[in-house]
Amino acid sequence: MYNFDVEMPTTIAEAVKALGREEAQPMSGGQTLIPTLKARLAAPSVLVSLHGIAEMKGVCNNDAGQLCIGGATTHATVAAEVGTQYPALASLAARIGDPAVRNRGTIGGSVANNDPSACYPAGVLASGATVVTNNREIAADDYFLGMFETALEEGEIVTEVRFPIPEAAHYEKHLQPASRFPLVAVFVAKFADGVRVAVTGASENGVFRWTEAEEALNANFNAEAVAGLKADGSAMISDLHGTGAYRAHLTGVMTKRAVAAITG
């Protein structure tokens, strides 16, 4: 690693101020960033740890009944605390990485990084959640812009993610055998006003909504409705672990299974 100063702010305001320093970079749980730093693929002068910001930690509900998860809340906490309200999201959090990673990694870090194979982006997008930063609120549909790209601006941090709670939802994941990230994973969320289907791991453009599946499921919320549907494999990742065609196929299978898990 190149060396850097570490700032340990205890409030969002302090964090924002620290991020104003030259070549400053925020770090939440560090579970992706620290390995990146070890490989010398990033060279911040100042690392601003968001870990000690109490106001960014924890789970609550707002007046609109949304589930509000602080940006610095670990996967372990989400897994443990949202199970009653939003079991599919708790299940997603409980299956990220491994237990030690879940004790450090945070929702804000995951959403800010927007790894094309991360789990949370699928949950956030399928839920139609709102990504709250230190200075604005961004709808999930406007937030994820592509592989490792988001609507966040320099120095902007994810302080909270607000989830409307669907009537039913399920997250179905097929693992990449080495990294244990999703090779393809699909989050299906059924709301009173429609179904949202988000796919991670598959596309070269990062997490995306599979609108054909949404339309089919809006017409008939049943696994059979998507059984014959083929995702477009042309923009899908092809690598050692699967071709684009395989990922496109898995997108269909995971979607079908997620729906089947909901309908029982």
Partner: peptide, 28 residues
């Protein structure tokens, strides 16, 4: 079932870390 050390045609190692070289885990 899992392990494969792969090179591309230019001789770059594709499975160069545990992110791509699948080590057997307890759940496998």
């Amino acid at each position: 079932l899992l392990e494969n050390c792969a090179y591309d045609s230019d001789g770059q190692l594709l499975s160069a870390s545990y992110m791509d070289y699948a080590m057997p885990r307890a759940s496998d």
